[in-house]
């Protein structure tokens, strides 16, 4: 059955001025388990649906965590929800982050803006299973310090793994880095040839980062991007999320750079 299942908001954390993280628990039977990188179609009654990537894990195992930025009518409605409110959820859809590709090597996570959200469950899993990898590093770019997601958690993560953060526009009192996210690629430790990179952020930022990483020696097949196009159905039937040969709701959103590079190079593909 491909209709939204009712979920209840059980937690709501304000991340930034326009972004909140919702924790949802099923009202009835839970949907099949979501893996990091996959997304749900989340329905805000009565306005409509938006695709939202999983942004965290819940202790119950049946819950879902989504971080949503209010940019349109549906996301604004979602961002305005309070515990007890209901939403509809369909999923899981799409490809997960390929964590197996990184086994034994370094993990480099590069996030831009709200792109940190889909990477968070991957980071948490990697931190929980340190023996599977050589190392984990996180690089984060944001517009301003106030736009940084999960700020407190970043500090906690930084105690367990190298975390580098930069902003485009500092605010008074900001003592961290200023500049584009690619300038941080030299500030965290990883062995390029033995690294798997996971990028999520604006497409322009991911393209520049992927090129820089490949230039440094990270294999293109191990640079993963989470791509975005219009999605209506999530089930591969509406045709709207096509990127050349890819149906991003099915063959994505996570796509390796060796596939994505040529596609993203063609304008308006």
């Amino acid at each position: 059955m491909n209709v939204p299942q009712p979920y209840q908001v059980v937690g709501r954390d304000r991340e930034t001025a326009d972004t909140v993280t919702l924790t949802l628990e099923p009202v009835g039977d839970p949907l099949p388990a979501f893996r990091p990188g996959q997304f749900a179609m989340v329905y805000a009654f009565p306005r409509g649906e938006v695709p939202l990537s999983l942004s965290g894990t819940t202790p119950s195992g049946t819950g879902l965590t989504h971080t949503v930025r209010a940019v349109g009518p549906v996301t604004s409605a979602l961002a305005g929800l309070r515990p007890g409110h209901h939403v509809g959820v369909r999923g899981p859809f799409g490809t997960p982050w390929d964590l197996a590709a990184a086994r034994g090597g370094d993990l480099l996570l590069v996030a831009g803006g709200v792109g940190l959200a889909p990477l968070r469950p991957l980071l948490l899993r990697a931190l929980d299973e340190p023996r599977d990898h050589r190392g984990v590093a996180l690089v984060v770019g944001a517009r301003t310090p106030a736009d940084l997601l999960y700020r407190d958690q970043c500090d906690t993560w930084a105690q367990r793994a190298p975390v580098a953060v930069t902003v485009d526009r500092p605010e008074p009192g900001w003592t961290g880095n200023v500049g584009v996210v690619t300038t941080l690629l030299d500030r965290v430790p990883y062995q390029p040839r033995n690294t798997t990179a996971y990028l999520c952020g604006p497409e322009v930022m991911m393209r520049a980062t992927a090129r820089d990483l490949v230039h440094r020696g990270v294999p293109a097949s191990r640079v993963f991007l989470s791509l975005e196009r219009t999605m209506r159905c999530g089930t591969g039937h509406c045709g709207q999320c096509q990127l050349g040969p890819l149906l991003l709701c099915r063959d994505g959103p996570v796509v390796a750079w060796d596939r994505a590079e040529a596609l993203l190079a063609v304008r308006e593909l």
Binding site: Y43, F45, H86, G88
Partner: peptide, 17 residues
């Protein structure tokens, strides 16, 4: 039509395929 959805007075969401 794929589904209909109703919101109850208590805020519960009912979606019918």
């Amino acid at each position: 039509r794929q589904w209909t959805a109703d919101r109850g007075p208590d805020g519960t969401l009912t979606v019918r395929e």
